[in-house]
Structure formats: C-alpha cells, structure tokens
Amino acid sequence: MSVYLLRRLIQALGVVFAMSVIVFIGVYAIGDPVEILISPDADQIERERAVRALGLDLPLWQQYLVFLGKALRGDLGNSFVFNEPALQLILQRMPATLELAIAATFGAVLIGLPLGLYAGLRPNSVGSKAIMAGSILGFSLPTFWVGLMLIMVFAVQLGWLPSTGRGDTAEFLGLQWSFLTLDGLSHLLMPALNLALFKISLVIRLTRAGVRETMLMDYVKFARAKGLSPFRVTFVHVFKNILIPVVTVTGLEFGSTIAFSVVTESIFAWPGMGKLIIDSINVLDRPVIVAYLMIIVLLFITINLIVDLTYSLLDPRVRLEGK
C-alpha cells in the first residue's frame, strides 16, 4: 500500500513539473504580458521599468529557473495584476468554488442515483421513459444557456432567487461559506443546480445501464430464487455492484467541476477560481496560470487516488499494489 502511494506521489511530481514547463513556454508563445498590462501611452522608459519589475527582462530559461528556485521554497510568485502571491489569490477563491462543486456533485448523486435506479428497475414504465427523456435534455443543453434561462425564470420573471453574486457568508474553519446563511443558500441554489444538471443526467444513465445489466446476472437471479426480498436484492446485491462506474465518473466530474466551472461562475458572477483563471489567461498573468494549473493537477491526482481507494472498498477483487 505505501509503495503504491509513494509511486503515485512521484508520478504526481513529474506531472506537475512537466505542466509548469509547458505553461511557461505556452504563455511565452501567446504574447507579452507587458503589452497587455501597460497603459497604451506608456513611453519606452516606463515599458522597460515594467518589464524589469515583472522579471520578464531575463531569457525565458532563466525566468523558469528563478521560478523553480522560488517554487521549491513554496513561493509560486506574485500575480502580475494583483501583486499578491498567486497561491494566496487562488486559495482565497477556492472555498467559493469548492462549495459550488460539492453542492453540485452532492445534488447530482442525491437526485441521479434514485432516478437511475427507478429507471433501471422499471425500464418500461412511463415514469422512467420521462426520466430518460429528461436526461437527454440535461446532457445536451449548454450550461450557459440553461444558466441564463434559470436567471430569466427564477430571478427576472418570478423574482424568487437572486441572480448574481454569492450573498452573505458566514465563517467556518476560518473560511467564508455561503451555505451557512439563508441568503447565501438562496444565491447558491441556481448556480449549483446549473452545474449539477449535466451530472444528474450522467449519473441517471450510468445507474440505469448498470442496473439493467446487473439484473440479468446469475447471482441476482440466484438471490431472487433464494427468496430474498426485492429490497435486499436491489440495495445489497445490485446497488453495490453498479457503484464502481458511478464513483469513477462522479470523482472525475467533481474534479472538472472545480477546475472548469468557468461558465457557470461567470454567468452567476460567482467569485470562484474559474473566473480568476479566465481573467488571468486574458491578461497572461503567468504566475496565476501556473499556480492554478499546478493546483488542478494535484487535485485530479488526489481525486483519482481517492477513487482507486474507494474501488478496493467496494470491490474486494480490486488490489492496489499492482505489479
């Protein structure tokens, strides 16, 4: 087990390192941050000062070495735009995004699993056909369009929910959270639902497919023949066996929700990391882009690890040591 964890850790470091090199070269290829950040009437003297101030006067490889040296000491550099440590900027915005992602994923599982289970057990009923048709919509409608529609109906037309921002927050574990206040919850509801919609559909479809397949398995037939109650057959024998794909996909989806909820965040003006990264890319704020992607890489690696560990809990046949 510890060998397995160690190997995963080394892999993670390799990926982070490779990613930082790629981002450095990539940002360099896109353009010059100074051209974007500087006032258009700045003269040459001011331009040279800005280039030096941002450390862009060195050749690229030297800039990278400077970055690497600092990174080893835990300093990923200051944002060009905010003049604050990039890591701190991202971590400040992380709770907002995490909150949104957790709410969306939680909602997806809570709604998707029962509906999928129902659709799998009663494939021919009107209800399950309606569920499946609905899930197609959830799949195919673009997030931002649904977001705008939600705003239009619930904020503009009905006036039930606020259309923008994060609302009141309360402190918990030293961080600000929306879900602890009523106002915050009402702000959270629409963006979370918007993010969850796609995931709900995904979970429904996975669950239904899994149930339909498992129901035909010999062990399920045997369990039924043995005279076990339908409840026990469903929730012990079927349910546990369909969870592996659901856990995998939910885990990966959770990661991508955190990393790439840009669209929802900008439509609902949710002050999370997604908005930060888009703004940073637009002005080529390299320290923030590098730090963000490093965090995301670590995040995905961690999630994958947790998913793997969950497998071995769900299915004793899965062994983690590998060869």
Partner: peptide, 19 residues
C-alpha cells in the same frame, strides 16, 4: 460595487432588481 463581468448576467441582474 460589484464586478459582474458577463454582459448577459449584468443586464439580467439589473432587470431582476439585484443591481
């Protein structure tokens, strides 16, 4: 003073009375 960078969202928020 709120930053709502998405044009559609900003207009919608004005219409909804949030801004």
């Amino acid at each position: 003073y709120r930053m709502v960078t998405n044009d559609a969202a900003r207009t919608a928020a004005l219409l909804a009375g949030d801004l």
